[in-house]
Design a protein around this nucleic acid. Structure first.
Lengths: 95, 95
DNA sequence: GTTATATTTAGAGATTTGTCTAAATATCTA
DNA sequence: TAGATATTTAGACAAATCTCTAAATATAAC
């Protein structure tokens, strides 16, 4: 997993909101876009970043492109976060 | 907790490395800097971002300024990440 | 008080990022 | 095939970000 891509992808509030929107299940690009005051082109850029980080999956269905969360990344992400902080009780104290 | 500040702070690899360095316990700015090929000024900028996100704490000790992880944020951060993804088994299926 | 060490602040410059408009691609429907 | 809809790609621009050098601040040691 590309740690850097994932953290970068999560750094933008619009992208985090996109992920949250997908929690309820897969949506087309257009359906996702309804919630944002942003052009389809800009939205598409965010999709590209999320895809590059492997946080979402896509599937074409006729005219539409359907986005869904890549839930397997969740585990990795949690691990990455946990890895950033010492486990409880193991932290170095005062010097 | 300022979610946006936290995610932004974590988006930079140098800052994540700083956090990892602090896992072993508190360190002075100079000690942290030894590991990076970067000027003290740039490092100080990263410290400011981490502090602003409340990810680290500081304490002056004479000439030195000692940085340590703010471990209480860990819990919040994990919650933020978990919140971004549906809990296992609850994810919406195909449409 | 002067000098040295540790760190931050200020300001500048190059790169990256998020947004837009315009144009391109893909699919559907008639 | 032609026209409509859905989405992406290309290119431009402003704002944010990371880095640097130079200067400022704070403490320590003499």
């Amino acid at each position: 997993m590309k740690q850097q891509e994932v953290f970068k992808a999560l750094a933008d509030p619009t992208r985090r909101a996109i992920l949250k929107r997908l929690q309820g299940g897969a949506l087309t690009a257009g359906e996702i876009g309804e919630a944002f005051d942003i052009t389809p082109a800009s939205l598409s850029h965010h999709f590209a970043v999320l895809k590059h980080a492997d946080l979402v999956r896509t599937e074409r269905q006729g005219q539409f492109i359907v986005y869904s969360l890549n839930s397997t990344v969740m585990e990795d992400l949690t691990r990455m976060v946990l890895d950033l902080f010492p486990s409880k009780g193991s932290q170095g104290g005062k010097r």
